[in-house]
């Protein structure tokens, strides 16, 4: 599975200030009716984009960006995978933020989108810097756990096991789970309710 390794994401960034951005804002519930992920990127922040003339997602300066800068508790709320899918399919390959909601983080891992953390002050600086210098190219490096641009760089955090999944290309875990099916059957046989309490 070496082709699935993710060691680095490079590109410009979109600053998305604010804490507690929940999945209802990222992909409003009415888009949950999509049957495949195709086109889900159109739902990205669509309600607030309608009411916000220079929403970062629409700002031409950030077009083609690969990295998203966010605040604290990003992706809270409903478990919908539509949120990370929409972000990824919009073209974002990594998110750097203060913190992430758990289910959102799990869903992001499963689709191969690394999440990195930095302090609130650092994120604030990054957001301010990008707002002024949208052309800045960032490199988010999973091996060195750094985010660098120009001559500057800062250390970022990441759950070690998730980092390893990206580095080793094991984030696509379905194959690994499948390989364990014999053990799965063994565990199932040992559970009283799987035997319908027959013995």
């Amino acid at each position: 599975m070496s082709d699935q390794k993710i060691t680095q994401v490079r590109g410009r960034a979109i600053p998305m200030p604010g804490d507690d951005i929940d999945t209802d804002r990222i992909t409003p519930a009415r888009f949950l009716t999509a049957l495949t992920w195709k086109g889900i990127e159109k739902a990205l922040f669509c309600d607030e984009r309608e009411n916000t003339p220079d929403h970062p997602i629409d700002n031409p300066n950030y077009k083609g960006a690969k990295i998203l800068f966010v605040g604290k508790n990003f992706g809270s709320g409903s478990s919908r995978e539509h949120a990370p899918q929409a972000i990824k399919r919009f073209g974002i390959d990594a998110i750097v933020g203060v913190s992430f909601a758990e289910i959102f983080a799990g869903n992001s891992l499963a689709i191969g989108m690394p999440l990195m953390t930095a302090s609130a002050e650092e994120i604030q600086k990054l957001i301010a810097h990008t707002q002024k210098n949208s052309e800045t190219e960032y490199t988010a490096d999973l091996e060195t756990l750094t985010l660098s641009w120009g001559d500057e760089s800062l250390s970022v955090g990441m759950l070690e096991e998730r980092r390893q999944s990206f580095l080793k290309g094991t984030w696509n875990i379905l194959a690994i789970l499948r390989a364990n099916l014999p053990q799965v059957r063994e565990v199932a046989e040992g559970l009283p309710y799987m035997r319908e309490f027959q013995d």
Binding site: S79, E81, I103, N107, A110, L174, L177, N180, L181
Partner: peptide
């Protein structure tokens, strides 16, 4: 769980 994990459960029950 998310949709990807729904897939895990359907295929592996884990």
């Amino acid at each position: 769980i998310g949709t990807t994990e729904v897939g895990f459960v359907l295929e592996t029950q884990t």
